[in-house]
Each structure stands twice: as structure tokens, then as C-alpha cells.
Simulated assay, not measured.
Amino acid sequence: MSLYRMTVIFVGVLLLSACERPSSIGLQTEVLEIDGVERTYHIYFPSDFNETEAAPLVLALHGGGGAGATFNQGTANTFIPAAESRGMVAVFPEGVDNQWCDGRTEHLAEDRNCTEIDDLAFLEAVIDQMIAEHGIDPARVYATGISNGGFMSVRLALELTNKLAAVAPVTAQLSVALAEQEPSQPISIMLVNGTADPLVPFDGGDVKIVKFGRSRGEILSTEETVARFRGFNNCVGSAEVVNLSDSDPDDGTAVQIESYTNCIDNTEVVLVQVEGGGHTWPGGQQYLSEALVGVVSREINASELILDFFLEHSKP
């Protein structure tokens, strides 16, 4: 195994993974077969879940090398409590070889054959099965994720728009490889990006696993990504900009929220700009040193912010 591949695995496995043994406490595991490949996902049902009441559903997509079973731990155990308190069903799918085919075709061919692994079909099948078997509200299905999982949620916003009401990628933007695609319907999106992310550059360019590593695909800037989705949703007018008060002066970060709300079908485009934030989940774990991945912002609980955003949106 090459040193490069070992580095990818080392960084990725620690991304959103709190310990060596995945915790499955409170999770129900299901298996689907897609094109002859067994695919696994884990479900968290809130304590008041009732299949007759059409609950909302959120897909939470792990980072590259990570695991669905440990997604909650990587958020410092904030994601499941946020879903529980909001009556949302959370699904944590597992990528093949702990990766997602997120559309960055320039590098994914080196790691896996995305012509044989159909992540889009898998996630669509998960949604359909959750609706059919657990009475999920088809108008309130959402997706979020970090890094590779964040890029995959951007891809879903372009290619699975008929199933999703909103997405919220964290530390991810629109890749150049997908830049010419357009969603079939308007879709709400919240981007949560750190301006000091050393792996996924806020201002666009080449994604890196380590600071001087080989390119993991070229991406548009955060500003360009916001502009594209404003265009997709026919948003007009200027943004409402809110600078949050500094609740933790010692973390070296500040948060500005830029919202475009005058868009068709009541969609919305929101940027949560974490000044000084790194390749991290705000309010989550400092899973590697700040020198490698940057700072975790303590100004917001991204799990709560994202799920509240989702619940403001449903498909017409």
C-alpha cells in the first residue's frame, strides 16, 4: 500500500470517528442489495416515533474513510440528540470502502470504480424503503454530510432533487466536475464552511488530504457555489446578513450567516461562514490536531442549526 493511500485512510478513518469500535447504541441496522452489492445503513428512531404520523427524515453522510455508525460521535454526540428533540428520523448510510462517489471524477477513479458502485441508486433506495416501511413524510427528506459526505450531499442536490427538500453540506462545495449540472427542481441548501479549512479551500481550487498532498479534485469557491444555487432557485434581491455574537472568545472563530430567502417555491440559499473555522463540524470533535485540520468552532451547534433549517422546508 502506498504512503499516499495510507495517509488517505488515516485521515479519513479519524474523520467523524471517535473510537476504534463503532457504537451502534440506539441504531437499527438494515441491508439493501444494489446491483449485486450489499449496502448497509443505520437508523435512529426518536423515542416518540409513530409510523402513522409521517416523520421527517435526514440522511447523514460520513466523511471519506469514516463510518455511518460513528457519525454522531464525530459531532461530539450532538446529532442524535438534535434529531431526537425535533422528532426526526436519522439514517446513517455506509459508503463502500468508507467512501462516496461524490462526482469528483478527477480523483475517484484512483480509489474506486464509480462505474460499478452506484451510490445514487443506494441512497434513493434507502429513501424509498424508509417511506414504504416506516411512513416517512416524502415531502420532508433531507441530506447532510461532512467532507466526502458533504460533496455527496451537493451531488444529491443536483441529481436527486425529486426526493429531497433541502441539503446541508459541511466543509464542501460544488466540484468543477459537476459544475455544468443543474437540478431538475429548486432545492434549499445551507453550506457550512470554514474560511481556514486547510483541506477543502474556502475560495476554491484543489482539495487536499494533507496540506501538500495530491489534488483530490478541483472545486468552485464557496461564493461561486452559493451563486450557482441562487441561480438554480431564481433567488432575487440581496442577502440578509447576521453576525452572531461571540459566545466563545477563546476558539478563534466567528460566524456570519448569509441568507437568500426570496427564491421560488419557498426555497432558500444560506451560507454559514465560519471565520477561522477548519475542516471540522462546528460544535463537534477536534478529531485531529489544528495543524492538520484546523479549528473546531464552538460558536454554534451545527447539528441543531442544520436540522432547524431542514424543518423550515418541505417539497411543494
Rank of each mutant, 00 (worst) to 15 (best):
Gln181Arg: 13
Asp111His: 11
Gly145Tyr: 04
Lys315Gln: 14
Cys114Ala: 04
Glu275Val: 14
Glu133Met: 03
Ile300Val: 15
Leu305Thr: 15
Ala82Ile: 07
His279Thr: 09
His107Phe: 15
Ser259Met: 08
Asn262Met: 03
Glu224Asp: 15
Asp102Tyr: 09
Ala54Asp: 11
Leu160Phe: 01
Asp35Leu: 10
Leu174Gly: 04
Gly205Thr: 11
Val241Gln: 11
Thr267Asp: 06
Lys208Ser: 13
Phe71Glu: 02
Ala302Cys: 07
Tyr4Gly: 06
Gln181Pro: 00
Ile25Leu: 13
Ala168Val: 08
Val13Asp: 11
Pro81Asp: 07
Arg298Gly: 10
Thr105Lys: 11
Ile189Gly: 02
Val207Ala: 10
Thr70Val: 09
Val255Lys: 04
Arg104Asn: 12
Ile127Phe: 00
Pro56Phe: 05
Ser47Lys: 12
Val13Met: 08
Ala18Ile: 00
Lys208Asn: 13
Gly95Asn: 05
Val11Leu: 13
Glu224Ser: 12
Glu258Ser: 13
Gly204Arg: 03
Thr75Arg: 02
Ala18Trp: 05
Val31Pro: 00
Glu30Arg: 14
Glu94Lys: 06
Leu305Ser: 05
Gly150Arg: 08
Gly231Pro: 00
Gly66Glu: 08
Thr144Ala: 12
Glu180Phe: 01
Gln256Arg: 15
Phe232Leu: 05
Asp246Leu: 13
Thr105Leu: 10
Leu16Met: 15
Ser188Ile: 10
Gly149Ala: 02
Arg39Val: 09
Gly87Met: 09
Val207Asp: 05
Asn148His: 07
Cys19Thr: 12
Gly283Asn: 09
Ala139Val: 04
Pro22Met: 09
Asn50Ala: 12
His42Gly: 01
Ala90His: 05
Arg140Leu: 03
Gln185Leu: 13
Val241Leu: 12
Asn234Ser: 14
Glu94Ser: 12
Asn262His: 12
Ser259Phe: 01
Val126Ser: 01
Asp248Glu: 14
Arg216Ile: 01
Pro282His: 06
Leu292Pro: 04
Phe79Val: 08
Leu108Lys: 09
Asn266Arg: 11
Ser47Cys: 01
Thr253Tyr: 09
Tyr44Asn: 04
Ile189Trp: 04
Cys114Trp: 00
His42Cys: 01
Asp97Ala: 14
Gly65Glu: 08
Cys263Lys: 06
Ser47Val: 03
Val154Glu: 09
Val13Trp: 13
Leu123Ile: 05
Cys19Lys: 15
Thr78Ser: 14
Cys19Gln: 15
Asn301Ser: 13
Gln285Ser: 13
His62Ala: 06
Asp206Gly: 02
Leu3Lys: 09
Pro81Gln: 07
Glu258Asp: 09
Phe45Trp: 04
Ile306Ala: 02
Met152Asn: 00
Glu124Leu: 02
Leu59Gln: 01
Pro93Ala: 02
Leu120Glu: 12
Gln73Ile: 00
Leu220Pro: 02
Arg298Pro: 00
Phe202Lys: 06
Ser289Gln: 09
Ala109Cys: 11
Thr280Gln: 12
Ala239His: 11
Gly278Gln: 05
Tyr142Gln: 05
Leu120Ser: 04
Met88Glu: 06
Leu57His: 02
Pro186His: 05
Ala172Gln: 03
Ala82Met: 06
Asn148Glu: 05
Val274Ala: 08
Leu305Phe: 13
Ala76Gly: 01
Ile43His: 00
Ile187Asn: 04
Leu32Ile: 10
Val141Ser: 00
Lys315Met: 14
Cys101Asp: 03
Asp48Ser: 11
Asp35Ile: 00
Leu32Thr: 10
Pro46Asp: 03
Leu61Thr: 01
Asn113Pro: 01
Thr105Met: 07
Lys163Asp: 02
Ser85Leu: 06
